[in-house]
Simulated scan of single mutants.
Amino acid sequence: MRSVSENVSVRLYHLDGGPEGGAATTLFYGPLGKALEIAAEQPEAIQDGLFLATDNDVVAYVDLIEG
């Protein structure tokens, strides 16, 4: 993910890797800072499938926090 401020708008979503290829469920649209708070509150199993999307980039939540 490119350098961004915590106020940039993002989409936080969970990608379910089910047998049919999975489905994306949006958890939040709004500022990155709030999206990170919401993501941190999710169970670890859910966190593994979380992604953050800006207008021009997508990053896995676990990659962002470990990176």
Rank of each mutant, 00 (worst) to 15 (best):
F28M: 08
Y13L: 06
L50E: 01
A35Y: 04
G30W: 08
D16M: 10
R11Y: 05
D48P: 01
I65D: 02
G30M: 08
G17Y: 06
S3A: 11
D55N: 08
Y13F: 05
V4A: 13
L36K: 09
A39C: 04
L12W: 11
F51I: 00
L50Q: 00
L15W: 12
V62Y: 00
L12N: 15
T25Y: 12
V10S: 03
V62G: 00
Y29D: 04
P43I: 03
L36G: 11
Y61W: 03
K34R: 12
L64Q: 02
E37W: 02
A45F: 09
N56L: 01
A35R: 10
A35N: 06
D48M: 14
A39N: 07
L36H: 11
A45Q: 09
D55G: 14
E6S: 12
G67H: 07
I46T: 03
F28L: 14
L15R: 15
D48C: 07
I65P: 06
G49P: 03
E20Y: 11
E20M: 09
D55E: 09
G67V: 10
A39V: 07
V62E: 00
G21A: 15
G22T: 07
P43V: 02
L27D: 10
V10Y: 07
D63V: 06
L12Y: 10
I46H: 13
T26Q: 12
G18L: 09
S3P: 03
L50S: 01
A53G: 04
I46F: 11
L52H: 05
V59I: 09
L36N: 15
I46A: 02
T26W: 10
G67N: 09
E44M: 09
L64Y: 09
